[in-house]
């Protein structure tokens, strides 16, 4: 028979555990996806391994499962012109290590167009994204930009 005081302690622990597991996750952008100089007629690919790849970090409860959903652009834009931007089924990589390794991530060749499910590590997650732009032969010169949105959600698992 559990006494009232003991039950209260047990309940407090349960509540504490529950609150701890509910620490909100955050997504932070470390670097943009930088295609640099692009030459008309010459497709330009940025590898997910490159320093110019997009990099996000996700923080939250270690061990908690999260889903990652990218909202990816179809074009990058400048005033009066656009240019196709493509992402392949292997353009994303994740590392949950305390010291993330972009050159040898724990989860590699992930499809950024699909929901990615992963568990946060002690240091959260590092997420890298590469991509490719396809300029036309007479692509208008200028600075092109588009937004990449990453949404991270706890699954509760």
């Amino acid at each position: 028979m559990i006494r009232k005081r003991e039950l209260f302690k047990l309940t407090a622990l349960i509540v504490l555990a529950a609150v701890t597991s509910g620490v909100a996750q955050t997504v932070t952008g470390i670097s943009d996806l930088e295609f640099g100089d692009i030459f008309p007629g010459v497709p330009n690919t940025v590898s997910k391994r490159a320093s110019s790849a997009a990099e996000f970090t996700v923080t939250g409860t270690a061990g908690a499962e999260v889903t990652l959903d990218f909202l990816l652009p179809t074009y990058v834009y400048t005033t009066g012109a656009n240019m196709p931007v493509l992402f392949s089924a292997t353009d994303c990589a994740i590392d949950s290590s305390l010291v993330p390794d972009q050159s040898s991530p724990s989860a590699d060749n992930l499809n950024p167009y699909e929901t990615i499910t992963y568990r946060l590590g002690a240091g959260g997650l590092s997420v890298w994204l590469g991509g490719r732009v396809i300029p036309g032969l007479v692509q208008k010169s200028g600075n092109y930009t588009a937004t990449i949105r990453l949404t991270v959600t706890y699954t509760g698992n």
């Binding site: 692009i38 030459f39 092109y144 706890y154």
Partner: peptide, 29 residues
């Protein structure tokens, strides 16, 4: 009740970040 509230809250909480893809197209030949 507390566990349900916290768990349900955790399951639906999310965070978003928007970053930019950029590139500079040089003058066409």
């Amino acid at each position: 009740v507390v566990m349900l509230v916290v768990t349900v809250g955790g399951a639906f909480a999310n965070d978003q970040f928007v970053m930019t893809a950029t590139g500079t197209v040089r003058a066409a030949l």
